[in-house]
Design a protein around this nucleic acid. Structure first.
Lengths: 353, 353
DNA sequence: CTGTTAGCGCCTTCAC
DNA sequence: GTGAAGGCGCTAACAG
């Protein structure tokens, strides 16, 4: 963006334009001896122009090193060929798989992805939605189904397809690809109770803006109340800090201090559970004999621990792919197969219970 | 501007425009009783207009639910306020931290990030570069320093700031934030040799397009040759498959079959090393007595294994943040502090060696 | 199959 | 501090 002109720096038409004025479609058209319209057509659909014309245009593009300006294209056609994606966090997160799935499907179709993260902060999510809406994406992908009123308002008003995900609700903004975190944890509790465990404790990170975590906690509380009516619920949570194995170790210690009678810990994430299982190994606590442990997410590590971790598998990558498919259908003006897709979950019973 | 009445259902000028014609700056200007110019100024720098004017404009923005169109802004100003980021893969990768660092710095500055992944395929990288260049980002971030000639050509020609990363080279396209993978592995080998290990084997995934992995392998070979001149180098690699712990388990088995005399395995990634350490635990192989193991990356799990994993820590997140800072300096027209930033690495000696 | 015309919504320049 | 004019690069409509 340097304002000094490398080379001779033409004064150009009138506007500031940076140093070496960029090659435009008009340059290509001139070089090929056709109109810009024909170049435009050739670029979007090569078969829509004559073979020899196409040939001259392709040569001209190569010689001029022309790179199409999508901003102008966007403005003129009212289609940006972009999708905005908003996730809580990128680092070491299972959402990375979802984004991978999303881009795996969208990039080959010519769409590009704007990515932003909220750090589980509703205000930041709203700011992101507002900001990304200014890019006029053709579609919106977002983790979660709870947003600020203003964010929801913006999402609805734009009229573009919106996919919410990783949760379940009967009233999505538009489209939904998710599953019930509540039901998933209930299935874990059912499994533990069926296995003879009676003194269960929930342990997890429950950040204020993380409604998935809240749903899991609520799933535990509800299942516990059903199996052990009247009995107090054991819950240990952390509200801050990074989602790391160290948190799992800390939670393990807190459970053993606060609820020493615990015979099974239901962790809200495999990361935490893995930290706990590894720590148990180091401390000589026998899993599952002394203490059963369950996780959530079926991360890579779950199957490799000793004992292997009982957990709930979520089709993280598939969520992204399904979301992309729904968006594509809408963006192509087709009717969507279903407005709501439940990818479900799968309880994987392994050695830790 | 549009000459049609904004209130009544417009037959619109002529262009297709979707159903509910979007609110434009002209609508806001009309509502506030000022020119679009003033609205434009107020939006970019609130202090550049009178206090009462600002007030009327802000009210008008709120009432009309105006959302600025950045595509138009981009076209008129020749600044897109976007940065393009290209990484090999998003899933379960350490690059996620880098992207997090990048966006952590860029989003608050008003920049938005386009993300694409290449799956370690040069051709896909080139296609992505070409495609993203069409968005006219104000900056480019890319993992790696080796690209196809055409990709390099495009990156250079655009004239925008480009940060390459996660490797080291004396001749970057533009800017560089990285470290020497070669030197990092050499330090691992030096450490092992100093610890008395004599029969080292390298094990890793070395995909055709992954030059970081190749640098690590070369680092091993060079260090090995220095310490054990004339002696054959032991190397076991996998060229395909996902980077998962299971690969580490497989590599462990192959090392034990192919080079049973091995007393230390140098893994190219903590993911692989973790799989191997966990498997050793299950098989009763004592680490480090029977077999020493090292990793790369200092992933969360490294410190939690038993024994804890000796590895090389890379400031993954910091790479993203430094890159963002350099890009910002360039995009703001300032001189960069340094064109090349070596974030280094740190050998973390733990129980596995 | 190809060209002409008229903007898309905003910002830069230059007046006042 | 504010406004008027014109154009950024491309594409939707319509011819022909």
């Amino acid at each position: 963006m340097s304002e000094n002109g490398p080379g001779s720096a033409k004064k150009s038409t009138s506007q500031r334009r940076s140093a070496t004025r960029a090659v435009t479609m008009a340059d290509v058209a001139r070089a090929a001896g056709v109109s810009t319209q024909t170049v435009s057509r050739a670029l979007r659909d090569p078969r829509s122009v004559g073979p020899d014309t196409l040939d001259r245009i392709e040569t001209a593009v190569r010689e001029t090193h022309y790179v199409q300006n999508f901003a102008a294209s966007h403005l003129a056609s009212n289609r940006s060929m972009t999708v905005a994606a908003i996730i809580p966090t990128i680092s070491a997160s299972i959402f990375a798989d979802t984004i991978q799935g999303l881009t795996d499907v969208l990039l080959p179709e010519g769409y590009q992805v704007f990515l932003g993260h909220t750090d589980y902060t509703p205000a930041r999510e709203e700011a992101l939605v507002r900001s990304l809406a200014g890019r006029r994406p053709d579609g919106f992908f977002i983790i979660g189904t709870r947003h600020t009123q203003e964010a929801t308002e913006i999402l609805k008003r734009t009229g573009m397809p919106v996919v919410e995900s990783w949760s379940w609700t009967s009233r999505p903004v538009d489209l939904l690809v998710g599953f019930s975190n509540h039901a998933a944890i209930m299935s874990v509790v059912d499994h533990l109770v069926a296995g003879g465990y009676r003194r269960l404790t929930f342990a997890g990170m429950v950040r204020p803006g993380d409604h998935r975590a809240k749903d899991r906690l609520k799933g535990f509380i509800d299942a516990h109340a059903r199996h052990f009516p009247g009995q107090a619920t054991r819950v240990v949570t952390a509200a801050s800090g990074a989602m790391e194995m160290e948190r799992g170790v800390e939670l393990l210690h807190r459970v053993r201090e606060t609820h020493p009678e615990t015979d099974a810990i239901v962790f809200a994430s495999d990361v935490l559970a893995a930290g706990a299982v590894l720590k148990c190994g180091a401390l000589g606590i026998r899993v599952p004999d002394d203490l059963a442990i369950t996780g959530f997410g079926d991360y890579d590590i779950a199957a490799h621990l000793t004992p292997a971790l009982t957990t709930v598998a979520i089709a993280s990558r598939r969520i992204g792919m399904e979301a992309a498919r729904l968006l594509l259908q809408r963006m192509h003006g087709q009717a969507v197969e279903a407005k709501m897709v439940d990818v479900g979950f799968e309880l994987l019973v392994r050695g830790s219970t």
